[in-house]
Amino acid sequence: MNAWEIHHRRTAALGDVITVVDAGADLPWSDDLAEVFGDRAGLLVELHGLFARRVTGRIELALDLHDLPGASVAEAWQAVVAELPGVHRTLQAYADEPALARPVANLHRTVAVAVGLAALDAPLAIAADAGRAFVANAAHIDIPARRDGWLRERLSYRLMKATA
């Protein structure tokens, strides 16, 4: 099997897992999943990677378009949790999995840096703790309402600045 086929197989298997957990079921496991991900830890790391990429992408966009880092990052986090509720629930349920410790700490550091709670060169443990505390409170952060057309206006403004 070539790399392209492996990628497609992993992507399809991950999509199937997401469908199952988003429907409210527990993390599935089978011989087919073992063949693709190796073990449950490998599957959990892959799920976390998907969640982290979505959060990071949303944070980058939100920070580029809004002037309120705390509200923007909270809004980005909440949006991904709403998009991937089963993945988020599963990652919460397996939070003590040793294979997730480093990736989760890195994502929390990313959040802390984006919000301004930690510097890029801060020790991982300190930055991760700040990000973890922010995420724990993200659901309670007031996100300002956006008026219709704000996204188009901001994107047009950014494009004009970039081409000027």
Rank of each mutant, 00 (worst) to 15 (best):
N2C: 06
W4H: 11
R10F: 00
L14K: 10
L14I: 01
I18Y: 02
I18C: 05
V20S: 10
V21G: 06
V21D: 02
G24S: 14
G24N: 14
D31C: 00
D32K: 11
E35M: 04
F37Y: 11
R40A: 08
R40I: 02
A41F: 00
G42A: 10
L43G: 09
V45W: 05
V45C: 05
L47M: 09
H48I: 04
H48R: 08
F51K: 05
R53E: 14
G57P: 12
H66M: 06
A71N: 06
V73L: 04
A74T: 07
A76H: 09
A82W: 00
P85G: 06
P85Y: 12
P85M: 10
P85S: 08
V87H: 09
R89I: 10
A93W: 00
A93D: 08
D96R: 12
P98C: 03
A99E: 12
L100Q: 07
A101F: 05
P103Q: 05
V104E: 11
N106K: 14
V111R: 08
A114C: 01
G116Q: 10
L117P: 02
A119W: 14
P123S: 00
I126K: 13
D129L: 00
A130P: 10
R132Y: 07
A133R: 15
F134E: 04
F134A: 01
V135S: 03
V135E: 15
A138R: 05
A139L: 10
A139G: 15
I143S: 01
I143W: 03
R146Q: 14
R154P: 03
S156C: 04
Y157N: 02
Y157P: 00
M160C: 02
M160V: 11
A162T: 09
A164V: 13
